[in-house]
Write a protein that binds this DNA or RNA. Structure first.
Lengths: 207, 207, 207, 207
DNA sequence: CATGAATGAGCCTTCATTCAT
DNA sequence: GATGAATGAAGGCTCATTCAT
C-alpha cells in the first residue's frame, strides 16, 4: 500500500528538484529517491529523462495558454470588453503560475536554453501566447478602448512582467523580503501592472 | 604567441557553451575542446569547474553594479539630476549586458537556481543593485523630482525589464523577429522603458 | 483462436532474433515485442530466458541426432549398406538443418561458447553424434566397403563440412552469392561432400 | 609500477573473456577487472566497447589475409609453384590462428552475426580471402598443375576446414580428446587437408 | 491465461579531477 | 606551463524477473 500513484509522486519530485537544481543538474536517481520509487520506473513512465522534461513543460504551457485563450474568446464574443478581458487574462496567468510555482520557475528557466525542444516550444506555445495578447490589444483598438495600438515592445515588456516573479522568486524573497507566493503579493503586483497598462487605455476600470 | 592567452580562450568557450547548454549541461571536456586546450588546464586555471563558474558570474556582476554605481555617485554629488542619472544608469545596464550577451544570459539563468553560490550573490551584488536604484529614487524624491516615491514593486518590475531581453534573446528573436543585440532594438526598448518611468516624474526630459 | 499458439510465436520470434543478434544480444523484451505477447509470458512458458535457450537447443540437437540414428540402425540391421547409410545420414543432416536455418545457425554459434550448458550438450548430443558416425564407418570397414578406417581427423572435418553452410550462410551469400537455403545449393554441396568421402570407399555409388 | 602497458592488458583480457562468454555476454567491467584497470580506461583507449571489438577483429583479419597474400605474391612471381604456395598459404593460416586461438575463436563466432560491422568485414576481408585463394587455384590451372579448376564449393569447404578447429576447439577437446593447440594436431590436420586438396592436383608433393 | 506495474541489479558511458611527466 | 594517462564516482538507461490482478 506504500507504493501508489507513483507517477504523480515522480512528477512532484521531479518538479521540485528541477526547480532547485535545474534539469541537467538533477539525476534520475535523485528523482527516484525523492519519489521513493525505483529508478527504472521513470523510464517506464516517461520513456526518458527527456520525456519527463517534455511532458512537464508542455503540460505547463498548455494550461498557461489556455487561461489566456479563455479571455480572448470572451473578448471576441462580447463588445467593448477587450480591456477587462486583457486584465483578466493577465490575472489568470499570474494565478496560474502562482499555483504551481516550482513548475513555473523551472519551465521559464529551461526555456532560456538553446535546445531543439525549446525551439519547438517557441514556435507553438510562445508564439501562440504572443498572438493571443496581440489579439486582445487589436480588439481593444478596434473597439476604440485604447488610444494607440501598443507596439511589440509593449508586449515584450508585458511578457517579462508576467513571468518575472515566478522566474525569480528567490530574488524577490531574499532581496526584497516579499513573498511572491502570497496572495497579497499578487494583488499588489497585479495592480501595479494594471496601472502601467491602464495608461494606454481611455477609461481605466481596474477591479 | 600563437598558443598564448589560453585563459581567455577558455573563458570565451565556457561562456558560449554555458549560454547555450547551461552550466551543468556543459562538460569541461566540451570547453577544453572548444578552447583547443587540454582538459587539465581548466582545473589548473580555475581550480574547479565551479571556480570557473564563480569567476564568470562575479566578474559579470561586478561590472554590472559598477555601471550603476557611477550614476549614483553622480546623482549624489550633483543637484536635481536624479532622474537623468536613473535613466543613464538604466541605459548603462542595458548597454553593459548587450556587450556581453552570452555571459549575461547565462548569469541571469544561473541565478534562478537555489545554490549556496546564488544565495551569496543575492546578498552581495543583487542586494547592492537594489540599494543603488533605491538610492536614486530616494534622491529624486528628496529633490522633488518625483511625485511620490515608487514602492518596491516598481523596483521589481524595473529589474525584470532590465534583464528580460538578455535572458530571453531567443524568445525575442524567434517569436518577435527582433534582434536584441541590435542597437536599434536597445534604443526602442529603452525609450519604452523611459516612458514608463517618466510617468512617476514631474518633468520628463527623455534624451 | 486469434491469440492462440503464443508459445509457438515466442519460439519463432526468439529463434529469429537469436539468429541475428545472438542469445545475449537479444532481450526478452525484443522477443516479446516480436511475438506480440507480454514479457512476463516468456518467463511463464520457459521459466527463464535461459530455459528458453535450453529448450531451443536441445530440441534442435535431439532432432539432429535422430536423423543420423535412423541410418545407423538401418546400417546395423542390413548388410553391406554402411556406405549408403552414411551418405543418407549426411544428406539427412543437411536437410534437417536447411529446414530450420535460423535455429541451426544460432545453435551452432552458441555451442562455441564455454558455458556449463555447452559442456553438457557436448557430453550428450555431440558425443553421440560422433559415436553414430563412427559406428557407420566401423560397420563399413567390417563390411569391407572401405579401404582403411578413416581416423578421427576425417570425422572432425566431416563435422565441419556438415555444419559450415548453416553456421555461415551470410558468408556464403555475400561472398559467394550462393543461396545456402536453395535446394540446388544443397545438391551440389552434398555431391562435393560425397565425392570427398567416396575416396575412402571402394565402390562409389553416389545416388 | 603496477599499472603498465594497460592497453595490452585490456586487449588480452578482452580477448580471453570474449572467447569464453562472447562479446555481448561480456561486460566492460569484467574486462576492466581482469585487466586490473579502471573501467573508464577502456572507453579512453577504444572510444567504445564496440571500438574495442572492431579493433580486435580487424587486427586479426588483417594478419589473417596477410599470411595468405604472401603466398599469392610468390605464386604469381614464380613459375609452376601454385600448388606449393596454396599448401603453404593453408599452413600459414592454420599456424596464424593457432598462435592466437582465443582471438580466432571469438572472431569467427562474431562473424556469424548479422551486424553492420560483419557486413563490412565480409565485403573487405572475407571477400579478399576468397579472392586470394581463387587466384591461387586459377594460377595452378593456367600452369597446368591442376586437372580441372575446382568450383566455388571447393573454396567454401576449404574455408570451413581452415577455421573449424579454431572455432570449435572445445568440441575437439571434449568430444575427440585431441588438443587443437598442439603442434602435432596441426600437423595431422594439415596433412589430411593436403591430401584432400591433392586429389585435384596432378603431382602431389606434400612437404 | 495473460497482463502491466514494479524491482534491483547491471549495463555502457561520461563525468570532473588528479598526477606524473 | 602544459600534457595525456588514469581514476572513482556518477550519469542515464535496460536488463531479466516477479507479482498482484
Amino acid at each position: 500500500m506504500a507504493k501508489k500513484a507513483s507517477k504523480e509522486k515522480v512528477i512532484k519530485a521531479a518538479v521540485e528538484l528541477f526547480n532547485v537544481q535545474g534539469f541537467s543538474g538533477t539525476s534520475v536517481r535523485d528523482i527516484a529517491q525523492k519519489a521513493e520509487c525505483n529508478v527504472a520506473l521513470i523510464s517506464y513512465y516517461f520513456r526518458n529523462k527527456q520525456g519527463l522534461l517534455e511532458q512537464l513543460i508542455t503540460d505547463f504551457l498548455e494550461g498557461y495558454t489556455a487561461v489566456i485563450e479563455v479571455q480572448v474568446d470572451k473578448a471576441l464574443s462580447e463588445e467593448d470588453k477587450a480591456y477587462d478581458c486583457l486584465l483578466q487574462a493577465i490575472w489568470n496567468v499570474l494565478v496560474y503560475q502562482q499555483k504551481r510555482p516550482h513548475l513555473a520557475r523551472f519551465v521559464h528557466r529551461e526555456i532560456t536554453l538553446d535546445t531543439t525542444l525549446v525551439r519547438e516550444l517557441m514556435s507553438t506555445y510562445l508564439a501562440k501566447e504572443k498572438h493571443l495578447f496581440s489579439t486582445l490589444l487589436k480588439k481593444g483598438y478596434s473597439n476604440g478602448e485604447v488610444y494607440d495600438l501598443p507596439d511589440e515592445f509593449f508586449l515584450i515588456q508585458l511578457k517579462g512582467m508576467l513571468n518575472m516573479p515566478f522566474l525569480h522568486p528567490q530574488y524577490i524573497r531574499e532581496v526584497y523580503h516579499l513573498m511572491p507566493h502570497d496572495s497579497t503579493f499578487l494583488d499588489k503586483y497585479f495592480s501595479q501592472l494594471a496601472q502601467w497598462i491602464g495608461v494606454h487605455f481611455k477609461e481605466k476600470t481596474v477591479s
